[in-house]
Each structure stands twice: as structure tokens, then as C-alpha cells.
Design a protein around this nucleic acid. Structure first.
Lengths: 342, 342
DNA sequence: CTGAAAGCGCTTACAG
DNA sequence: CTGAAAGCGCTTACAG
């Protein structure tokens, strides 16, 4: 059986379907009585508007698209959930799509544009947006009046960017290891060769005159298992460091588990820090030292950026918003529970 | 500037837009040459089909809707992510929507129906679907040919259900506490008065002749903080139990953190178990004893159920699939690391 | 305040 | 093998 349409409501209420459409969208020049009548029959019939038809004519779908990497990272889930809440609160739905390599982005963007999303969030972009392979697809989306915001380390003259300074986080945590705890043999455990955040580690090590900057890379998949296994392997061949800065909290949790399996205790034998500040990190045993910006903050800033553009002012110049991060010194680096300053 | 449409491609390639449409959808009666020509100009122009228009005429949107509770629970995130992968692999997008109380469900279902989803997954339903307040809305969706599957404890003659036996999990874990470890004073820490899984706890306690079945309820919000604070409060007023079965892994992690703050160690002073088997539970310190079915399993079973219906056989009788669960005896109950049998 | 008509961008019988 | 026409369910000028 077919859906109930405005035609059904029109027939039922003895009005034209034009009037029905207007009554339902609360058009000012429709009498109160007809509005009441039409709304009543609409709910009686269990009517809900066909968003496909509506979207086709209005060119707005009340949908925000999100294209991001690392979807299976719990921290990403936290952000997506926060975003969903924001987006729902503003009357939109969130459509999430993932990608592995940047060359998939073009088709993902086109898909989203084909679904006529009103806004588009593209996640974990580093570098100049206009120089990327996906720029043509993104430009088409912009011409189509889609509001776009990228994160977390992009630069652009055309597109708003929400910037999160992972490099500074890595640097600050490394400096904390060095200055507060006096560590000199510190590892950086990254997930791939290109991570930008390792630069912060190198900078801090170099500034402290620590040459022996050892860095070790896991292969892509950034899950806990990989990190646990990797640290186990490493410690069989190399002498232990005093501290390990991990690519993120998930890696850090894997590493702490691996260290425990090897008989090392954190932070007594080896100190550990992560990056992200996932909710669970403060509940872990030992509580994880980390840095990050709260997902609600990120989601809120994104929605703010998006809503400014959704108001159709595509003319105003692109902005870059830099979100300040917090550092959390907890047990895993050797600090006490309290969030003491460096 | 406007999007490129099939009209643009038709003009560019000197064909009618009917032919363009057919060439793009690989219609058999279009010559290879025109197909090649048209596809070439389509990609040259950066064409991507308007899914609104397509959806309007075809009544299919390549979208699966998910309506669920507890969206901010990391276990739910894990499931959603697994589902998204499944759904993408089958060529669909996933649209996720949340709800707090069951009376919101009707409007959520109508929203999804209005967005013309091809399939709909409705999460955490307990009881007879046909007796629910949202049944009229769901019935309308079914009449509209939307494939529907519910989880996790529903019964229905019209709708497929994916069943996960949380009661049995609670029972099995409680029995494990009793038989394997000889505990007699066991608490059940639930998140609300109506959770079905507490029944398994009661059953096990009763069967063992343990009358003093103490149960304590947290208020709604089922996050780690609440659980941590609650256990702290409780232990100030009552003498400690030997073991605590928690509503889920997240609650259990909060509880373990709270116990640590109070100076108790797990499992030496108090044993703890959760339910869900979130990825992180096996990495926790101590590793958490828990039970659950892997998210990929659940997602796979859902997609299977859905795809059977998406093939338009709405006639075949509704099925109920019961997913077997696994139990993981780890450190937090006093078992060793190995997954020993009860 | 209300209605008839055109049109959004596609697909799909119906003809040729 | 290809095209002209109707129609999916809405909204929105344009008339009245």
C-alpha cells in the first residue's frame, strides 16, 4: 500500500493540495481554521512528508554529511555522537561516510553532493585544501551551495577549517616528560610515517638537546591489539625507554596492556602518555596522561561554523578556528591524580 | 551555480536525456558506443546523480535507517560502526537516529519513513511489537514496503527480530560467581528499574538459595561517572559485597574505578563482571569478566535479515534469530587470564 | 485567503 | 537502438 500524500489529505479535507502544502508549512496567508482542519486530518491519516519530493524542489534536505577517517576509533565515535546531537538539535540528520585513503574522497564528496546534503564536514585533512586531488569535487559541492567545514589541520581560502593542534599536544606532553620527570630516553610510538603530530615530539626532543630521538612505527591499523603486540616485540629487541608518547589514547591503552604483559608497570618502569583524552582514559588503571579537546567543544564549533554558512552567506571569507586543547597529567606519566600544572 | 544534470550531459553529447539516463544505468538496449560516449562526458562534467530525484521516482534511496537508544554508549558505537561497514558494503548509506523514551519512537519512525529509507533497524525493543505505542507508525512503514528488523528482545508476527539473550548472560555470570568462586553476597548494579537482564541475576540467586539478593539502581544516565560515584556512595553506607554484576561493561569500568578510589582492589576485595564485551574490556586492568556477542556478528545478522526483506519478499513470515553469546572469564572475577570454562 | 499550473531531476512504459 | 511524454510528491510564483 502506498504512503499517504498531500493529495490524500486534500481529498479528505476538501481543500486543494496547494492549500494543504501551505497549511502544513505554516504559510502566513492560510486561515487558522483551515490550518487546524488540515493538520488534524494529516495526523489522523498518519501523514509524514516525502522528503525526496521536498528535497527535489527545495534543494535542501535537512541533512549534514560527515566524511571522516578512523571511524572505528572510539574517540571518533565520541565526536560523531556529539556531532549527531548538535546536528539533531538544529533539525538536521547526520549522514556518516568513511574513507581510508584520500583518493577515495572525491567520490565520497560527490556521493554526498548527490544526496544533496546541506552541509558537509570533511575530517582529518592536513595541508592546503585547494591543492588536494579532491578539490574539484569539493569545489563543485561549494558551487552547489553546500556549506563545508574541514578539520583538523587544513588551510584554505575557500573553506572554513576547524584546527586542532596535535603537534602542540605532542610537544607539550614530550616537554612534560622531559622537564617534570627528567626523562631523556623517550619513544614516540606512531601509527604511520606521515603523522603530523610526531613533529611536536621531535621539536621537544631537539630543543632539550636529546639527540637519541627514537621513533617506532606501527603499520596502519591503529587498534589496541596492534599496539599491544608491537610494544611486546619491540621490547624483546631493544632496551626499554623511560617513557613512551603514543599516537593516541587507544594506542596508549594497547601499549599499557602490552607493557603489563611483559611484566613492566606503568608508570614505575615506563611512563606512558596518549593524545585525545577519550572519556575512558581517566578511568583506566593507571589513569592515562593525555591531551585533547572535548568532543562537545569540537562538535559545537563545527556546528557553529556550519550554521553560519547554512544561512547562505557563501560570500564571506573562509575562516580558520583554532581550538585550544587541554592537557591532563594523570597517573600514567608519574603525576598524581590531581590535574596539576606542568 | 547549479549542479550538472542529465540535461547537460544530453546537450553535450548530442543525445536525448532519456538515452543519457539509460546509458548511465547500464540499460541493455543502449549501444556500447553511446554508453561510452555518455559516460565519458558524464565524468568529464563531474556528474553525480541527484538522489532526491532518483529516490522520488524509484521509491528507493539506498539508505538504511537505524533508530536506537544509548547512542553514547561505546558498545553501541561499536555496533553502529560495524553496521555502517556492512551497510556500505551492500551499497547503502546508514542514517542514525536516537531516542530516549519509547514514546519518541513513533515520530522517529515516521521521520525515517518520510526519508524513504529502504530498511529500518529499531534498537533495544523488549516485548511484543504489535502492542507498542509505536506500532501504528511501524505498520505504516511496513505497508510502505520498508524492510524492518528489531533487536534485541522483541517478539512479533510481522517483523523480524534479532534476539540477544541478556537475561541468560546475567544468569550465567551470576552462576559463575556462585559456583566457581563460591560467592554468596553478590550485588546487581543496574541502571534502571526495568532492565530485563536483572531477571537472570535473580534466577541464579534464587536457584542457589541465596535470599539476600541485594540490588541497587542507579538513575538513568548510564555513564562511567555515575557508576563510579554511585558505588562510592553505596560503600559508605553498606558493608561490601563479595562480587558485583554490573549492567554493562561501561558501568563495570566506572565501578572498578570507584572501588579503586575507595581503596578496594578488584578482584581480591570485590569481584566485578560486566555485560557486552566491549573491545576495551579485555585491555582493562584488571581485564574485565563479561559476556556478549561480537558487534560484527550482530551487524552481519542484521544485514542478512534486512537483505532478505529488501528483496521485496514481504510475504514470508517474520523470523526471530537468536544469537548465541560468549562468556569471557578474565581477571576481574578472580579467574586467570585464559578463557577457561566455567 | 485559496487554487491551477509549472517545475525540481530523474525513470520508465509506450512508440517508433 | 533511441526519443517524446508522463509522472514521482512536493513547493512556489502567478492569478484570482
Amino acid at each position: 500500500m502506498a504512503r499517504v500524500t498531500i493529495i490524500d489529505i486534500a481529498r479528505e479535507s476538501g481543500k486543494s493540495y496547494t492549500t494543504v502544502s501551505r497549511a502544513l508549512s505554516d504559510h502566513p496567508r492560510i486561515s487558522i481554521e483551515t490550518k487546524v482542519l488540515i493538520r488534524a486530518t494529516a495526523t489522523r491519516l498518519g501523514y509524514s512528508p516525502n522528503m525526496m519530493a521536498k528535497g527535489l524542489v527545495q534543494k535542501r534536505t535537512q541533512t549534514i554529511g560527515l566524511i571522516a577517517t578512523e571511524l572505528s576509533n572510539p574517540v571518533r565515535s565520541e565526536l560523531i555522537e556529539a556531532l549527531r546531537r548538535q546536528v539533531h538539535a538544529s533539525g538536521y540528520q547526520l549522514l556518516v561516510s568513511g574513507y581510508q585513503d584520500e583518493d577515495e574522497l572525491s567520490s565520497r564528496i560527490r556521493d554526498m553532493a548527490g544526496r544533496q546534503v546541506d552541509g558537509l564536514i570533511i575530517g582529518k585533512i592536513t595541508g592546503v585544501v585547494e591543492k588536494k586531488d579532491f578539490w574539484p569535487a569539493l569545489e563543485a559541492a561549494l558551487k552547489q551551495d553546500i556549506a563545508v567545514v574541514t578539520f583538523s589541520n587544513a588551510t584554505s581560502v575557500c573553506v572554513d577549517c576547524l584546527c586542532i593542534d596535535y603537534v602542540a599536544m605532542a610537544r607539550k606532553l614530550t616537554e612534560h616528560f622531559i622537564r617534570k620527570h627528567g626523562f631523556r630516553n623517550i619513544w614516540y610510538l606512531g601509527v604511520d610515517r606521515n603523522t603530523i603530530r610526531q613533529r611536536g615530539y621531535f621539536a621537544a626532543m631537539q630543543a632539550a638537546g636529546l639527540e637519541s630521538a627514537k621513533r617506532l612505527f606501527l603499520l596502519p591499523a591503529q587498534d589496541m591489539q596492534t599496539a599491544r603486540d608491537a610494544i611486546g616485540d619491540l621490547l624483546q629487541h631493544e632496551s626499554k625507554p623511560q617513557a613512551i608518547l603514543c599516537h593516541n589514547d587507544i594506542t596508549a591503552i594497547g601499549v599499557m596492556n602490552g607493557l603489563r604483559q611483559c611484566g613492566y608497570s606503568v608508570p614505575e618502569d615506563i611512563a606512558v602518555a596518549g593524545i585525545d583524552n577519550h572519556q575512558i582514559s581517566s578511568f583506566f588503571n593507571p589513569a592515562l596522561t593525555t591531551a585533547g579537546v572535548a568532543s562537545e567543544r569540537v562538535a559545537g564549533a563545527m556546528m557553529k561554523l556550519l550554521e553560519a554558512r547554512l544561512g547562505h552567506n557563501h560570500q564571506s571569507p573562509a575562516v580558520a578556528v583554532h581550538l585550544p586543547f587541554e592537557t591532563y597529567y594523570r597517573e600514567s606519566c608519574g603525576c598524581c591524580c590531581a590535574n596539576e600544572e606542568e
